[in-house]
Nucleic acid binder design. Structure first.
Lengths: 328, 328
DNA sequence: TAGCATGTGTCAATCGTTTAACATATGGGC
DNA sequence: GCCCATATGTTAAACGATTGACACATGCTA
């Protein structure tokens, strides 16, 4: 592949001149510029970004660690991050932690070796210390790691409140919360707290089913199904379900139907996330929407500010909306 | 950040020795190896992969151009490619074409500048020539580009045949095909051909609705909805739908329900892809499954073989399965 | 005519790593 | 005593680009 030297020779100018054209520095006549571009064209020259990164000590690559883009939420998140990052001249290196400690550590290391300019963490199972020692611009989604690492999240508590209040307003009397793994200490667990507070405030008892495994395989009947069927068996009079994610809500809809419960007549269901397909499932899902595009933008901004050496806010909480559809 | 020189100094050895340890070349005593590793540990040294890539003329990065990982099919595909690539020591640079010509060209260029070792194309709207001139290991999904670029696809014709025959076997008399954009000359359009052949063989007339826009925004009522509603209006007696993708099938299910048609009693629906959620939607979707994990593996293998300078098969067709569920 | 903006060139160092070539030293086997 | 495997070092070039320092034009202006 042609190098800057080849271009210089072909254009009959010095290497320095070509570099000046490429980087728009110093004085360059129109004539020379034209010659240089012509030479590049003829040779099919593409500046070697690897050499550039080495010299400039900036890779313009952002690292991404997410559980997997197969999960629709992270698919949407990565979509938006790619959009914003590209617009600002950054490339993305994508890795999948599958929520496994070893993979997460391994990829964190990998991204450091690659000298990415910053890392977006959509997954975190490691200890706080590991991240403190990374010494690289970081930003997380929905995970608070220590006090110095900025995080971005929806207003989880408000979302939980909206969902639960809505179920009550629609006449649900016995409301169950389907939770993700509470042990991971994710900010999304505040949805749980909101649910508990609201049902208690209405003089009822919280009922929580925790799903400890991760939904990276198909979420339908499989492991989720049994657990949800158990719920209907143990609480035959359940008439409201608040699921901590749309995926769990879909599974609940599925099981409800299998057991002959009509949604929303017999059971009302509210999800969380407003995924790609939530308006397409039948009936369309009432859910709490997170403003993913805005959150992605903020994530990249926060990284850029750190890259530039500036100080950043730690907390970035985004407002949520209740989207009322057919399941309530 | 510590360099190999720092490590050498700290370990009291020569830079060459450190490099020998890192790359496992030449003779190294256990004692020296230990000292070097200790020094690396103390300094938190990570070899600079950028420098390595420059020197070795191998980046060990694979470029990915897909419409977007927000689309569940590409989410699943990228998931599997990441898995295989990581296992073989490759990293992924992810880009989203959104099926736009300019973006595709821009990203193709970007990946070349980054000296990726190979590119997986999940999207292709450009002219054949552009790709022929890339001079880089390439492999595409479902797109035949010229005669020299290897492609990977499911057995589209067989899938279309299975789906259509199944609908007929289940008693559907008037079967409509919901097609993606036929103009793009994708291999998936063979599903269309199979559909046409089968219904003709049964003495019926093919009815095709083409959806020219891309489903990267939400696929529900929006643009799809109207078109599908029109279909039910123009052909009130339709009792079978073969959708060229699960997303289209979901939309069809959605509209059918809105218009009071029961699935599968009044209309039977078959999709294509077997996405993450297809067993979760209500009722679960009958669909044609592509073996995405195997296809992803093959994609990386095909790239590796090209990287190694070997010759590769051009056609890689994978068998499909009809997964019968609740919509038929 | 001095000064300055403009335009281009030469030279050399630098980013962090790999690697070839060669030197040197030790210890064992024959 | 020679050969050879083992073990480590020194030196220098290379990968492809950027950049600072400096030289040397040309042409305009004050």
């Amino acid at each position: 592949m042609a190098t800057i030297r080849d271009v210089a020779k072909r254009a009959g100018v010095a290497v320095t001149t070509v570099s000046r054209v490429l980087n728009n520095r110093g004085y360059i006549s129109e004539e020379t510029r034209r010659k240089v571009y012509a030479a590049m064209d003829e040779l099919g020259y593409r500046p070697n970004e690897i050499a550039r990164a080495l010299q400039k000590q900036r890779s313009f690559i952002l690292g991404l660690i997410v559980p997997t883009v197969k999960h629709p939420f992270f698919g949407a998140l990565v979509h938006e991050i790619e959009r914003v990052a590209a617009a600002r001249g950054y490339k993305l290196m994508l890795t999948h932690s599958l929520m496994e400690k070893e993979k997460e550590a391994e990829y964190l290391d990998l991204l450091r070796r690659h000298r990415v300019d910053g890392i977006v963490l959509g997954s975190h199972t490691l200890e706080v210390d590991v991240f403190r020692n990374v010494r690289l611009p970081l930003v997380t989604f929905d995970r608070r790691i220590g006090e110095a690492i900025p995080f971005i999240c929806p207003d989880n508590y408000e979302g939980g409140r909206l969902a639960t209040e809505h179920l009550i307003a629609r006449g649900a009397r016995k409301i169950v919360y389907l939770s993700g793994p509470l042990s991971f200490d994710m900010l999304s667990n505040r949805r749980h707290q909101a649910y508990v507070d609201v049902v208690r405030a209405h003089g009822r008892t919280p009922i929580v089913y925790e799903f400890t495994f991760q939904a990276f395989e198909s979420p339908a009947e499989g492991r989720y199904g049994e657990e949800i069927a158990r719920l209907f068996h143990e609480h035959p009079d359940v008439d409201g379900i608040f699921a901590s994610s749309d995926i769990l809500a879909y599974a609940a809809m599925h099981v409800a139907r299998r057991l002959g419960r009509k949604v929303p007549e017999d059971v009302k269901i509210v999800g969380f996330d407003d995924l790609f397909l939530s308006q397409t499932v039948v009936p369309p899902l009432t859910t709490v929407r997170q403003p993913i595009p805005a959150m992605a933008e903020r994530a990249v901004e926060v990284l850029e500010r750190q890259i530039a050496g500036g100080a950043v806010e730690i907390e970035h909480v985004f407002p949520v909306d209740l989207i009322v559809r057919g399941t309530t």
